[in-house]
């Protein structure tokens, strides 16, 4: 596909998602109380969007991922939160 074709096909969808993201961040700012680790992870992931390098989707996913390699002693929950609490 040419760059023009990509824009024609995906710009409106991406624009819509970008505004939704902006509104989400505004909503978070308007709310009260402390945020858990997910907000920091989200802000870190956002930085990858502005980078002018390929594989942004991969880097966003990696930034949310548990980078450790040892199995957990026990599974105490079934679900996942979407971000790794150990990320600094």
């Amino acid at each position: 596909m040419t760059r023009q074709q990509v824009l024609d096909q995906y710009f409106m969808d991406a624009r819509h998602k970008l505004i939704d993201l902006a509104a989400f961040l505004d909503r978070v700012d308007r709310s009260e109380g402390d945020a858990d680790f997910r907000l920091a992870a989200f802000r870190t992931a956002l930085k990858h969007l502005a980078e002018k390098k390929p594989h942004r989707a991969k880097r966003v996913l990696l930034s949310f991922s548990d980078p450790t390699t040892k199995p957990l002693a026990k599974a105490t929950v079934k679900g996942a939160t979407g971000a790794w609490p150990g990320m600094k």
């Binding site: 996913l61 949310f64 991922s65 548990d66 980078p67 390699t69 996942a80 939160t81 979407g82």
Partner: peptide, 13 residues
């Protein structure tokens, strides 16, 4: 393979 933040580690294991 596991969901979300657990997928990378789980895939490796």
């Amino acid at each position: 393979t596991p969901h979300l933040e657990d997928k990378l580690k789980g895939t490796r294991l």
